[in-house]
Amino acid sequence: MISFEGFTLLILFFILAPIIEAIALLFLFIFEKRIDLLENRNVKIELEKELQQALYNQLNQQIQPHFLFNTLNVILSLARLNRTRELVRALEVLSQFLKFKYKSTEPLISLQREIDYTEQYLEIQKLRFGSRLSIQLDCADDLLSACIPPFVLQTLVENAFKHGLERKMGEALLKIRISSEDEEVRLEVIDNGSSGMEDLSHEAPPTEEPQLEKSGHGLDNIRRRLHLCFGDHAQLSLSPIEEGGTQVLVVWPFVLCDPYESEVRG
């Protein structure tokens, strides 16, 4: 037999249950649309992410023919000059370089891998320039595992050759400095060629901001990719050097890449 206390509790439950249910229902009615809205927003964000990924991949693809045509021109020059040994070596290095390049699909790679790519490109250029070309590469070991969008350094180096060192008579000097400051990575590519500003201004759309900021297709591509990856935290600037040449500075946040992945892929 149920006691009086038990009966009171039972009645209390019978009365409270609909009240709790009503509150829950009210809560659901009020927030249902908001929950749906949040879900839809999540879907929208996912879609935007997908779109950005697609855009990013497209930009990555864009840069490949750009590089390829420049390098083919280098090889063509070697062939025209009948420098067969260098030509063979250039084709060998290009083949290795392209093998890595077409395999790379990830949005960010380690600086170590990027430097490796660039060195393969430089190898091709060294063949062409011979002893006339001197390269300085300064990079602290702890920065080698920092993340960077692929082909950033390689494009900057390529541009230094295309717009500066190609026309330089005498010694061609290329400095690559990678340092860190306030949780940011600073990449400087300095050449002593002609400033190449006029050249670049032809390539860039006429609406670009100051003259110094004008850049060609490669630099514009780097800007857009940096923006996709790091938003407003990344920047790229181009400036002429008084004693002749150009300096390109890229700054982006220091983010560590997965060391295992870089090891495996590198």
């Binding site: 009645i11 439950f13 019978f14 009365i15 249950a17 609909p18 249910e21």
Partner: peptide, 11 residues
């Protein structure tokens, strides 16, 4: 809801 409303009507 089906569980709680009949409880109230039992009361």
């Amino acid at each position: 809801i089906f569980a709680t409303i009949p409880l109230a009507f039992s009361a």
